[in-house]
Amino acid sequence: MSFSRGSRKIFDDISLDIPRGKVTAIMGPSGTGKTTLLKLIGGQLKPEQGTIKMDSNNVHQLSRKDLYQLRKRMGMLFQSGALLTDINVFDNIAYPLREHTNLDESMIRSLVLMKLNAVGLRGARDLMPSELSGGMSRRVALARAIALDPVMVMYDEPFTGQDPISMGVLVNLIHRMNQHLHLSSIVVSHDVPETMSISDHIYLISGGKIVAEGSPDELKNSEDPWVQQFIAGKADGPVPFHFTAKPLMQDLLS
């Protein structure tokens, strides 16, 4: 599909396949529109051209009601956690359960505690979101994302700005969730080592196009200099260090 914002083409005729039951990573430099891609998949944005299908449903041709039904089967973990700040952790996770199911409070309580247990934060259930650290709020947000037992979970930059321990915890959680709950996961990130350690399939996107794709090993052994620069984190290469400018001597002497 293709998607533009104003006159800028964000995605130029790209095609992606997200396999079921696996962890698919979408990586690329900052600003390539990776979050936009997740919003397109979730139906919050509409592509100009092309289709997005989830489980044989064309996302953008669904009625509002059906789209909402489809969204119940998707979980999304936002970069900032996006917890509702005026209710505590327990109520945040219970929120989708109370809204979309008719379960009584005791059942909801059991479910919430189990989800919290899965992310290791059962003891934090009475805290307010403002009292949580960044890593903790992401884990709570993850528990909320799986509250309705979705078939697919999307992670928007889950590792950004985390300390090594939190990072390790999150990496571990994403991997285990995918396996034990038989999810299909889409991880959008530019943290190379962490993402590569848990992904089954990776797409590298830059300039609105898919530059490379494959398994982590395939990409590590890729001959493409751009891929190499990205994976290894080299300072200079196909993406130059210097912003376009006159030669140094010319600038200094003029």
Binding site: R71, K72, M76, F78, A82, Y95, E99
Partner: peptide, 10 residues
């Protein structure tokens, strides 16, 4: 992103 979050929770 709380508003977006709510939308994604249907």
């Amino acid at each position: 992103e709380q508003l977006s979050g709510m939308e994604m929770m249907a």
